[in-house]
Amino acid sequence: MKTKKRNISDTTLLLTITIVVFFAMYIGAMIFQGKGFLKLQTFFNILNANAALILMACGLTLVMIIGSIDISVGGVAALVSMCCAVYLDRNVLNPGENLTPGNVFVSMLIALGIGLAYGLVQGYLIAYLDIQPFIVSLAGMFFARGMTTIVHTNPFNVENPAFNELKEPVRVYFLGTVNKKGNLVPAKIEIGVFVALLIVLVLFFVLRYSKLGRSFYAVGGNKTSALMLGINVKKTKFLAHLMCGILAGIGGYVYFLHVGSGAASHASGAEMNAIASSIIGGTMLTGGVGNIIGTLFGVLSLATIQSIVSSAGFDQAWWTGITVAAMLCLFLVVQSIVIARKKKSLKKQA
C-alpha cells in the first residue's frame, strides 16, 4: 500500500515539473520574444504541427508504462504516409494513365491496417517470445524505412480533391481573435488536433479508471507481483504494444494530413521526439510511472522550445537536435535522482 502511495506522488511530482516548465517557457517566450507568442494562433500552429507527435508519444507512454519501448513509430509514420500517398494519387506509379483518385476512407483503413500489423507482430515478438523490445522495434524501424523507399523512392505531393478538402484546417470561430480592422479571424485548427486531443482524453480515462489501464501500471511496476495478483502479464504487454502500433498508424495518418505528401524521409527522428516528450512528461523508463496528460505537456514543451530556438535566430538545423537532446538529458537525470531517492527512503523504511 505504502509503495503505491509513493508511486502516485512520484507521478504528480514529475507531472508538476513538466507543467511548470511548459508554462514557464511559454510565458518566458511571451515576455522575451513577444509578438508571435502573444497570438493565440501561434499556439494552435504548434498544436497543428505536433498533433501526430502527440499521438505517437501517447503510444510510447503506454509501452513505457509497462517498462518496454518502441522506436519504430517514426518509421511507421513514414510508411503510412507513403502508402496512403501512393494509394490516393495513383497517377504517381502509373504516369499518363489518369486513373481515378483513391478513396480517402480506404486510405484511413490502410493507415490503421499498417499500424495494426506493426502492433501485432511487434507485440507478439516482445510479449510472447520475450525478445528485447529495443531490438525488435529497431528492426521494425529499419524495415519501415526500407519498405517506404521500396514502395516509392521520390517524394511527391498528393493530388486528390477529397483529400485536400480534408486537409484544410477547420475554422473555429469561438476561439478566434479580433484583428486590427475589427474583423473576427477564426482560429485555424487541423482535424488531426481534434483526433489527438480526443485520444488523449480517452487514454487518460482508460489508464486511470479501467482494469486494463491499472494492469499496465501493475505490470510496469513489478512483473512478479502483477503475476501474483492474477494479471496476465504477457497479454497486458501484448495489448500495450498493439495499442502503440495502432496509435503510430493513426499518428502517421495525422502526419500525412499535415504534410500532404509522401517521402521516405518523413517523420525522421519522430521516435526520438516521442520518447523525449514522454520522458519530459514524467513517464519513467523503468516502467510503472507515467501520465498521458504529462505526455501532452511534454510534446508541447518540446515544440515550444523548438519554436523559441528557431525564432530566436538559432535557425541552423543543428540547434534543434542539440536542444532536444539537452532537455532529454536533463529530464533523464532528474528521473534517475528521483528513483535513487525513492530507493533510499524504501531502505530506510525497511
Binding site: I69, F134, W318, G321, A325, L328, C329, L332, A340
Partner: peptide, 27 residues
C-alpha cells in the same frame, strides 16, 4: 556515466547522443 552511475538504460542514454551527435558534428 549516464548508464553506470545514473542507472539509465543504455539504449535510452545513448539516444541523447544519437539525437544530438550529427548536430554537434556539424556545429
Amino acid at each position: 556515466i549516464l548508464v553506470a552511475y545514473f542507472k539509465i538504460q543504455p539504449m535510452v542514454a545513448t539516444l541523447i547522443l544519437f539525437t544530438a551527435g550529427r548536430s554537434i558534428a556539424a556545429w
